[in-house]
C-alpha cells in the first residue's frame, strides 16, 4: 500500500511538471508584456499553441532521416525525466535516488546532443549554424553547471538533489560565500541554457541572433510541439532547481500526508511565480548580446563555479 502511494506521488510529480511547464512560459510572457505596457497573450495561450501544433500534420523535409523524426520524442523524454527528478513539492520521492545532479545535467546534455544532430540532419546552413553555436554555448554552460554542482555537493555532502534540499533547509547551512557564487553562476547558466535574453531571444526568428530557433527551423506539427514543450519543461526544470536549492522551504518530507503535499504544491506555485516575475523583469531590463560575447558571459559563470569549489576545498565553512 505504502509502495503504491509513493508510486502515485511520484507519478503526480511527473504529471505536475508536465502540467505546469506551459503555464510558467505563459506567465513569463504575460509579465514581460505587462512590463512593456502591452496587454500580452492570455496565460493559457501556450497550451492552445501546443494543442494546435499537435493537431497539425508534419511537413517533413525530403531527406530527413529517422534521427530527425525520433529526436523530438527522445529529447522530450530525457527532459521530462530530468524535470521529474528535481524536487518540486516534496523531497525523497520514490525514484529520486535513481539519478543525481550529475545525471540530471547529463540527461539535459543528451537532449542537446540529439537536438544539435537533428539540426544538422537536413543539411541546411541554418541547422548547421544553430547546432554549431549551441555546442559552443554548451561547452561553457555544462562545465559551469558541473562546477556549481560540485559546490552544492561539497556543502551538502551528496550529489543527490533530495539530500541537498534537505540539507539546505536545515539550520546548519548558514550564510556562505560559495552559495552566493553558486546562485549567481546558476542563474547565468539557466539564462543561457534556456536561450533567454541576453544569450538568445526566445521570441525572435531573426536569423542573425538565433541559436535554438535555427536548429529547429525545419520542424513542424507535432514534432515542433514536442520541442516547444521541451523548452518549457527545461525552463521549469531550472526554476525548480534554483527553488529547491535556494528556496528549500515547505518541501514535504518523505512519507508525508496530503496536507504537507498541498502546502508543498502551494509553496511551489508561489516560488514559480516569483521566479517568473524576476526572469521577466531581468529580460526587459537587459539587451541581447552578440554571440561572441556569450563565452565571456558564461566564462564568468565558469569562474564563479570554480571559485566556489576552490573556496570549499580550502575551508568547508566558506
Amino acid at each position: 500500500m505504502a509502495v503504491l502511494l509513493s508510486l502515485v506521488v511520484q507519478a503526480g510529480q511527473m504529471a505536475l511538471v508536465l502540467l505546469l511547464a506551459p503555464l510558467l512560459t505563459g506567465l513569463v510572457r504575460r509579465v514581460k508584456a505587462r512590463l512593456l505596457r502591452r496587454r500580452g497573450p492570455p496565460l493559457l495561450q501556450p497550451y492552445r499553441d501546443l494543442w494546435r501544433l499537435l493537431c497539425k500534420e508534419v511537413v517533413l523535409a525530403e531527406n530527413a532521416s529517422w534521427l530527425f523524426r525520433a529526436t523530438p520524442y527522445l529529447i522530450f523524454a530525457a527532459t521530462w525525466v530530468a524535470a521529474a527528478l528535481v524536487p518540486t513539492f516534496g523531497r525523497g520521492l520514490m525514484f529520486s535516488w535513481s539519478a543525481d545532479l550529475i545525471a540530471i545535467i547529463a540527461l539535459l546534455a543528451s537532449a542537446r546532443f540529439f537536438l544539435a544532430l537533428a539540426g544538422m540532419d537536413i543539411g541546411t546552413s541554418f541547422g548547421g549554424i544553430g547546432a554549431s553555436r549551441e555546442v559552443m554555448i554548451a561547452s561553457f554552460a555544462e562545465p559551469a553547471m558541473l562546477l556549481i554542482m560540485f559546490s552544492l555537493a561539497l556543502i551538502a555532502g551528496s550529489t543527490q538533489l533530495s539530500t541537498v534540499a534537505t540539507y539546505m533547509a536545515s539550520a546548519e547551512v548558514g550564510l556562505r560565500v560559495s552559495l552566493g557564487l553558486a546562485l549567481v553562476g546558476l542563474a547565468i547558466v539557466a539564462l543561457a541554457e534556456n536561450g533567454r535574453i541576453p544569450v538568445d531571444n526566445p521570441a525572435t526568428h531573426l536569423e542573425l541572433t538565433m541559436v535554438h530557433e535555427a536548429m529547429v527551423l525545419e520542424y513542424s506539427g507535432r514534432h515542433l510541439a514536442l520541442i516547444e514543450f521541451t523548452s518549457a519543461l527545461k525552463l521549469l526544470l531550472y526554476v525548480s532547481l534554483i527553488a529547491c536549492v535556494f528556496l528549500p522551504w515547505d518541501l514535504a518530507p518523505p512519507g508525508a500526508g496530503p496536507a504537507a503535499w498541498a502546502i508543498g504544491i502551494l509553496a511551489y506555485l508561489l516560488k514559480l511565480g516569483a521566479c517568473a516575475c524576476l526572469l521577466a523583469l531581468f529580460e526587459t531590463a537587459i539587451a541581447k548580446m552578440r554571440v561572441f560575447r556569450v563565452p565571456e558571459f558564461l566564462g564568468a559563470a565558469l569562474m564563479l563555479g570554480l571559485l566556489g569549489t576552490l573556496l570549499l576545498f580550502v575551508s568547508r565553512s566558506l
Partner: peptide, 28 residues
C-alpha cells in the same frame, strides 16, 4: 524511464492528436 516516457508521448500524440506526415522540400 526515458524509454517509457518517449513511448508514452508517441502513443498519446499518435492516438489523440495527429499522425499525418507529408514530405516536402526543405524550408530553410
Amino acid at each position: 524511464f526515458i524509454g517509457v516516457s518517449a513511448s508514452l508521448a508517441a502513443l498519446v500524440i499518435h492516438r489523440v492528436a495527429s499522425h499525418a506526415v507529408r514530405r516536402a522540400p526543405a524550408w530553410d
